[in-house]
């Protein structure tokens, strides 16, 4: 069995500043990490590998520095890394990104399962997993919290819903997106990192992937970001003083005045 894990490299913090001149988020100088949600995807793939001998391929779209995240994924237990990189990919929206990823996954050869994190910590669209499934022509199950059974051509999982979960089955190959509840990701070991340095990671650009120029970058992205703004600051910040009894009485009065009780 071959499992593909799609990862994204993101800034390590969501405390970012907006650069109004460039209409972009200033992430210059921030340490870049594997999207935390994707580490659950990676961990799950490595656990399957350890339990039943699968190989794990990790793939990512992005600039040169994404190489570091791919190597970190190898150090966590992935076997192969694939880097999709082209300056012309910049400005791709989630739809275009899913297109690029799908062509990359098709190029890396036969596979049984694609695992993604439920969303990225930065853009937070949660779009790439299901869109990727559509681009690959595959079924998709989102928000997976447990893989109950996985065998040749078949998977059964628990999918989180808004009021609980459902047990879902389907054929492989399939795309699943996973939630935090599924496992506790390991850290990359120092030994693993040293070993990962020596692995060759192919870098594929738009022409290597045979992409349609009308489907990536700004030209291939139906959406664009017109404006970025900080959220409105919260007002208030009133501290209620007094004995606990007084504090509680004042609070309840205020909540009643606001007609929320």
């Amino acid at each position: 069995m071959r499992i593909v894990v799609s990862i994204k490299q993101v800034p390590e913090t969501t405390e970012v500043k907006i650069d109004p001149a460039k209409n972009s988020v200033d992430t210059e100088g921030l340490t870049r990490i594997i999207n935390p949600y994707d580490t659950y995807a990676l961990e799950e793939a490595v656990r399957i590998k350890e339990a039943s001998g699968a190989t794990v391929a990790v793939i990512s779209v992005g600039p040169e520095k994404v190489d570091e995240s791919l190597r970190e994924a190898l150090a966590m237990g992935a076997d192969e890394g694939f880097h999709l990189s082209d300056p012309a990919f910049e400005g791709s929206d989630p739809l275009a990104t899913a297109y690029i990823l799908a062509r990359g996954i098709e190029k890396l050869g036969p596979y049984d399962l694609v695992i993604c994190g439920r969303q990225a910590m930065d853009g937070a669209s949660g779009q790439v997993g299901p869109s990727l499934a559509e681009e690959l022509g595959l079924p998709c199950v989102t928000f997976v919290r447990k893989i109950e059974e996985l065998k040749e051509g078949y998977i059964r999982v628990q999918r989180m819903t808004d009021d609980g979960y459902e047990v879902v089955e389907g054929p492989l190959p399939m795309v699943i997106t996973v939630v935090k509840e599924i496992n506790e990701p390991r850290l990359a070991s120092l030994k693993g990192l040293m070993k990962a340095k020596r692995v060759t990671i192919p870098v594929w650009n738009a022409s290597d992937l045979g992409l349609d120029p009308a489907r990536y970058g700004p030209a291939g992205s139906p959406t664009s970001v017109a404006r970025l703004s900080p959220p409105p600051p919260r007002t208030g910040g009133e501290m209620i003083e007094g004995t606990p009894e007084e504090q509680v009485r004042i609070l309840v009065r205020k909540l009643r005045d606001a007609k929320v009780l």
Binding site: L95, Y99, Q127, M160, P222, T223
Partner: peptide, 19 residues
């Protein structure tokens, strides 16, 4: 919702439109 977030991206890709 968990269903809406599963459906909308697939539909967007099928229709090649923005979400």
């Amino acid at each position: 919702t968990s269903n809406g977030k599963s459906l909308a991206p697939r539909l967007a890709s099928r229709l090649r439109t923005g979400l």
